[in-house]
């Protein structure tokens, strides 16, 4: 029973309540740094680290954080982890760090992270909060990666810098530029909504069939 519960919290973030495709949160890094798959992965991992780390701290301190100043306390905790992530990336992969630029410090302002602290970590025990954070961050990583992969494949004919189609590929310049982010995200959201619509339709049909039988 217990194990099931944590599994639920994890899966909900990856799929049913995916922070990007369903809740449409964290749009700023989503649109800004997904012009290549490697940037998207780096951003996703940094966010993963910050979200899980701050969820652990917030949920362990939840009885000591005064209600009136909770947001500033969350922000301080998040900022601590963002600083760690910032310097780690700078030390390990300086090239990626340079490409991501201002968007690493801006993880602090990602509403997905603050939202999880406010809605989940500050109300639930640490174990559940960790699974929730991991699920949400994995969902975010998945979304970033799918956007980054589509944009890099179409915009550059490559994935992780490896050319896929040979020399003669005609790059879709718009996909590397900001409009490409909006277009790709829009098309993916379209498919998610269409899928949800079809699923609801199917469920309604099943319910109808059960009622009549």
């Amino acid at each position: 029973m217990k194990k099931n519960e944590s599994y639920e919290e994890f899966v909900k973030g990856v799929w049913r309540d995916n922070p990007v495709f369903v809740q449409v949160l964290g749009m700023c890094p989503m649109l800004a740094v997904t012009n290549s798959a490697i940037n998207a992965i780096a951003m996703g991992l940094a966010t993963f680290f910050v979200l899980v780390g701050s969820s652990i701290l917030v949920s362990s301190f939840r009885h000591w954080i005064p209600k009136q100043v909770r947001i500033s306390c969350f922000i301080i905790i998040i900022a601590t982890f963002v600083t760690i992530a910032d310097y780690t990336l700078l030390a390990l992969v300086p090239k990626v760090h340079k490409e991501l630029g201002a968007f690493i410090p801006l993880i602090v302002a990602n509403c997905l992270i603050l939202g999880r602290q406010e809605a989940f970590a500050s109300r639930y025990p640490t174990r559940l909060a960790v699974f929730d954070a991991m699920g949400m961050a994995a969902g975010f990583l998945l979304a970033l990666f799918s956007l980054g992969a589509v944009r890099e494949i179409l915009g550059d004919g490559a994935l992780f810098g490896v050319k896929l189609f040979g020399e003669n590929f005609e790059p879709w310049v718009i996909m590397i530029l900001p409009p490409g982010g909006f277009l790709t995200l829009g098309v993916i959201l379209l498919f998610f909504n269409w899928f949800k619509y079809k699923k609801d339709e199917f469920l309604a049909e099943v319910a109808e069939a059960e009622r009549s039988s």
């Binding site: 005609e170 879709w172 310049v173 718009i174 996909m175 530029l177 409009p179």
Partner: peptide
């Protein structure tokens, strides 16, 4: 869209 995507062609 075409002009922004394939400016050379």
């Amino acid at each position: 869209f075409l002009l922004a995507t394939f400016p050379i062609a």
